[in-house]
Design a protein around this nucleic acid. Sequence first.
DNA 1: GTAAAAGTAGACGCCATTGTCTAAAACGTC
DNA 2: GACGTTTTAGACAATGGCGTCTACTTTTAC
Lengths: 234, 234
Amino acid sequence: MKEHMTPATRMTGHTQRGQCAKRMSILDAAADVFCRQGFAGASIDEIAAVACVSRQTIYNHYREKETLFVAVVEDVMNRANAMLFSVLSTFPERAEDLEDDLTAFAVRLNKNCICNHDGKFLRKLVQTEGERYPHLFESWRQQGPGKLITALSALLGRLAHKGALAIDDFDVAARQFVALGNADLQMMILLGATPTDEELEKAARNAVRTFLKAYGRPEAEKAGHPPQLAAISG
Amino acid sequence: MKEHMTPATRMTGHTQRGQCAKRMSILDAAADVFCRQGFAGASIDEIAAVACVSRQTIYNHYREKETLFVAVVEDVMNRANAMLFSVLSTFPERAEDLEDDLTAFAVRLNKNCICNHDGKFLRKLVQTEGERYPHLFESWRQQGPGKLITALSALLGRLAHKGALAIDDFDVAARQFVALGNADLQMMILLGATPTDEELEKAARNAVRTFLKAYGRPEAEKAGHPPQLAAISG
DNA sequence: GTAAAAGTAGACGCCATTGTCTAAAACGTC
DNA sequence: GACGTTTTAGACAATGGCGTCTACTTTTAC
């Protein structure tokens, strides 16, 4: 019953830890297999093998395949949600060094929320089974991209309010920031490969440079003198 | 019953036309079912039902499920390829009315290549079965996004050469153009829904505006005097 | 009109998978 | 060491899909 959360050992220190470990092992294995094979293609036996657990144990914890599936999705979505929240809290607040700070933020966002295991899983599953489970799709959309854009929009608004950016539509700008950040990684994202740190850095750099060319107010960055003219006039 | 009609009346005008119609009917139905259910989840019986054809007929034309699958992928890829080529040939060449022309181009690209039936099918299939059929993924990547970026890169280069754009890295700019164009449509693209013409127009407008803010040279548009300084100095 | 080719319907064997059941083993607690 | 819970391994029926086969009908070519 009290499986989730940290190794809590609540409930009078029952055999909960063993059970909890099994459950997590099953969830991880199931996520792996579901992600690779899709719901229809995944077999309980394979999940059991990957989890190093007997098939019956899976049926003990989750009555049927579908129950296991939704449990996996919930589990991954919770993790991904927490990670997204954590990354969003590192969005730069100061107008100085904006390019570097935004770049570092874009790297964190891509690395920890979009190109990581959970991001890949959710994208693939939503793509694969989204039509069959509309609720799954809707829930993911709201908690994932929805929250991301809303939050980013507000954060960009704060920077704009400080005079660091010149944005007319914050929502559009937020979506464009994410889109630009993914522009160079699309292929890897689709394949599910994990980009190297260099690739992440370069992609983020390209994205932020273009984003700031479109929305930046160079003067705020250095102090208050006309900027970037050198680049343009050159 | 002989709607599509490719130039296939070879073979002394045999029964090819009837066969051809059946084949296409099967291919269409199979694309539909494979797209919705994935390879593992798709059943030959369902495909036969959708195609209004007996199961045996499918086995007559394509020896087994996998043969049918690759035939479907090839078929859709050929269509998508032709469409991409056709759309790319409408890329604007003149520097006047660049914003409107680029917007119209982005609309065409999104509508006919990315948000259409074939685009959805390929994206979903590549996502779903890409790891199981690396060849499929690679082939799609080269002929689809690869060609698109290469071509766009060259076309942007021509505009830049004419002084209409200020681009340092054409490849990056091409990817960003596509990414910006999709920014507002990501959700619909993932779900496979078809955006309305208004949504397409608005998304393209937002994308091109930002793209031109980053890469545009307003002077070229009007006549030929130093540009963008007004925007920056303001 | 006739004969060959293509398409149909249905039955069939085969195999993988799901989900249940049972009896034995492992584990943790007292 | 004894007890209850959990896990395990394997057998089991039921289901459903794949791919084959056969006998029948329709279409097409000449």
